[in-house]
Simulated assay, not measured.
Amino acid sequence: MIYAQKGHGRRSNLYTDYTFAVKDGDKLVPFTKAYTGLTDKEFAQVDSFIKRNSIEKFGPVRTVKPELIFEIAFEGIAASNRHKSGVALRFPRMNRWRTDKKTEEINTLDDLKNMLTIYNQQSGVVEAGEL
């Protein structure tokens, strides 16, 4: 997680909307946002971390020390010119908070693009350059 925003409705007092990144060499590249999948207790714990570990604030968005690792589940993946990663996820959600993982173990941009290639092969989609 690299960015956080306060939620809506009953969670408007907590940071519950998160942006996640993958590694690209020494950089972190944002690839998706998610705001569902954690328990109320986990959201409260992450909110506390965000409040203690915010680096910058841009309007409602806080840049957070990239120390929390989450497993992201999704329904589909597609190439995207609109996203910095070049990939868009369909219905992303936090599957679980990976307290057992270190930041050095997060996925890379290449991992994400490999998932896209595998998804396209399984769904019968042909990528440009494969013809």
Rank of each mutant, 00 (worst) to 15 (best):
K84N: 09
G37N: 03
R90L: 13
I55M: 10
T108P: 00
L68W: 03
R11E: 15
R93C: 04
D24M: 09
K84R: 13
I118A: 14
N120H: 12
R90I: 08
Q5H: 04
G86Y: 00
S85D: 01
N81V: 11
I2R: 05
M115Y: 12
D47V: 01
D26F: 13
D40Y: 02
Q121Y: 08
P66Y: 04
L109D: 00
A88I: 15
E75W: 01
A128N: 11
N13A: 15
M1L: 12
L112D: 00
E42L: 08
V61Y: 11
H8K: 14
D26K: 13
L38H: 01
S12N: 15
L112M: 03
K113L: 14
L38G: 00
N120A: 11
P30N: 02
E71K: 08
F20W: 01
E67T: 06
N114D: 10
E104G: 09
D47I: 00
V125F: 09
L116W: 00
A21W: 00
L116N: 08
D47G: 02
W97L: 09
N81S: 15
S123Y: 04
V29Y: 05
S85T: 03
T103R: 11
Q5R: 15
V46Y: 06
T108H: 04
T99D: 08
Y15T: 01
T16Q: 08
Q122M: 14
I77V: 09
M94L: 10
D47C: 02
D111L: 04
T103I: 15
I118Y: 06
G37F: 00
R96Y: 06
A34S: 05
N107C: 13
K102L: 12
V126Q: 12
P60G: 07
F91G: 07
K6N: 02
N114M: 14
K23L: 11
P92W: 11
R52N: 10
K51D: 02
T39V: 05
Q122R: 15
F74P: 02
N81R: 14
K113P: 09
I72H: 05
T108Q: 04
P66V: 09
G124W: 05
G86N: 09
K6G: 09
N81Y: 15
Q45G: 02
I72T: 05
L116A: 05
Q121G: 10
R11F: 15
K27H: 12
E71H: 04
P92A: 10
L89C: 04
Q121E: 12
P92E: 08
D110M: 15
Q122H: 13
L89R: 07
G25S: 09
T117S: 15
I72Y: 04
L116K: 12
D26Y: 13
